[in-house]
Structures are given as C-alpha cells and as structure tokens.
C-alpha cells in the first residue's frame, strides 16, 4: 500500500508483485530449459538416423516442442478450471481449500457484493446488471476454460504433426488432424496429464486438513483445529 500522492518505489512494486514475478521467472526459465533439453533429445534421434542436428531456433518452432508444452498447459488450466468451479458447490470439511460447508453454492448477492450490494471499490461490472454481471461473475472460469480449450486445440494440432513425423520416420503414412483426434496417442498424452493434475488437487485438499505450512495462505494457521473449514493462514 502507498500513501496518497507518494510515487511507488521500485522495491515496493517488486515486493507487491513478488508472487507473480517469481512464477513468471521460473516459468520462463523452464520454457528455455525445455527448449535446450528438447533440442538435445530431438537431435539424438536425428543423429541416430544419420541426419544433421537442428538448432534450438528451429526446434522451438517445431511441433515436437509445442505438443510437449501445450499438453501440459491444457491439463494445468483444466485443473484450475475444475478447482475454481467445483469449489462453488463441493466442500471438504477441515480443508482450507474449501469454503464453509453452509456456503456451498453461488451465495447471495449480499455475500458476493454485487448489484445493490456493490461497494464503492467494487469493479464496475459487479455493480452492473444483466449479461455484464453474469459474464463478470464467471470471468475467471471463462478465461481459464478458454485457455484450456485453446491449449488442448494447440496440443491436437501440434500432436498430429509430431505423430505424423514419427510415422514417416518409421516409413508409415502420416495422419490428418481429424484422424489424430481418434488415435490413442492424442488421448494418452491428454489423460496421462489429467490424472496427475486431479491427484495433485485431491492431495492438496485432503493433506491440508491435517498438515500446515506456517505463513502460507494455502494452509490453515498452524494451531487451527483439523475440523475448521474455510480458514486460510
């Protein structure tokens, strides 16, 4: 928080946004690392086939790179889409990832500070009525869902090319995108990521009933009872 009229100092901005910055940095570092490791992996196949290796620049434009990236993106955004929406109606007694049992559902306008209950500082569309309020009330899930579907579509497009590339390497016919959508390769890449995301959410919801991480908003305060629900540290 800054005092009115006082310009924010860079250090203050960094601290206020440190969580986003931390994840942005490790995301970009992972993306770059994946590019180099993926190039090395791809080139092992090129060299064993008697072909010249490709550069990192060529590899990051290849379907082989993007199918691996987007298959993970789609599952992560599906995870958050489901987590954001399922926690509206489903609850877990004792978990800080759940709201209080009696609050299951969309909750009242008063609880949600919308329409006539909107406050001075509420976002403009929270004060609106009709479609704008409906859209804004679901905007997080809508955007998460759109990124999930976009990533899944990109996975299928990249996967079709990467699969065809492997087919041709093995002297077999390539496949079209629509053919690829029905192949086990597409669904195996998809579901193997889904299962791990669902397990991670389940573990987080259940383990956080009994275990604590002092200072983390994803945990209850260390001394809070196991039975307390909807309490964040």
């Amino acid at each position: 928080m800054t005092r009115a009229g006082t310009p924010r100092r860079p250090v203050g901005l960094l601290k206020e946004n440190s969580l986003s910055l931390f994840f942005a940095l490790i995301f970009l570092a992972s993306l770059v690392a994946q590019a180099f490791v993926g190039t090395a992996f791809f080139n092992r196949e090129q060299l064993s086939g008697g072909l010249e290796p490709v550069g990192v620049g060529d590899y990051v434009l290849s379907s082989a790179y993007w199918v691996d990236i987007t298959e993970n993106w789609q599952s992560e955004f599906l995870q958050f889409l489901l987590f954001v929406t399922a926690t509206v109606w489903f609850v877990q007694k004792g978990s800080p990832e759940s709201k209080a049992i009696e609050k299951a559902g969309r909750e009242s306008d008063k609880d949600q500070k919308v329409g006539q209950y909107a406050e001075e500082s509420s976002p403009p569309w929270a004060r609106a009525r009709g479609w704008r309020l409906s859209v804004y009330s679901n905007s997080l899930a809508l955007v998460m869902g759109a990124i999930f579907l976009g990533s899944w579509l990109a996975q299928s497009l990249g996967g079709a090319v990467a699969y065809s590339e492997e087919q041709l390497r093995n002297l077999q016919d390539p496949v079209t995108w629509t053919e690829y959508l029905l192949l086990p390769d597409f669904w195996s890449r998809t579901i193997q990521n889904w299962q791990s995301e669902f397990l991670a959410v389940l573990a987080m919801v259940v383990l956080s009933i009994y275990l604590r991480e002092r200072g983390s908003p994803e945990s209850k305060p260390v001394g809070t009872a196991h039975q307390s629900t909807g309490v964040q540290g």
Binding site: L51, V54, V161, A162, S164, E165, L168
Partner: peptide, 9 residues
C-alpha cells in the same frame, strides 16, 4: 506431398 516437421512423404 506430405510434410510433417523434419520428415516428408
């Protein structure tokens, strides 16, 4: 002609 990445038919 079919091209897929670094392979073609």
């Amino acid at each position: 002609v079919h091209v897929a990445g670094t392979q073609a038919q």
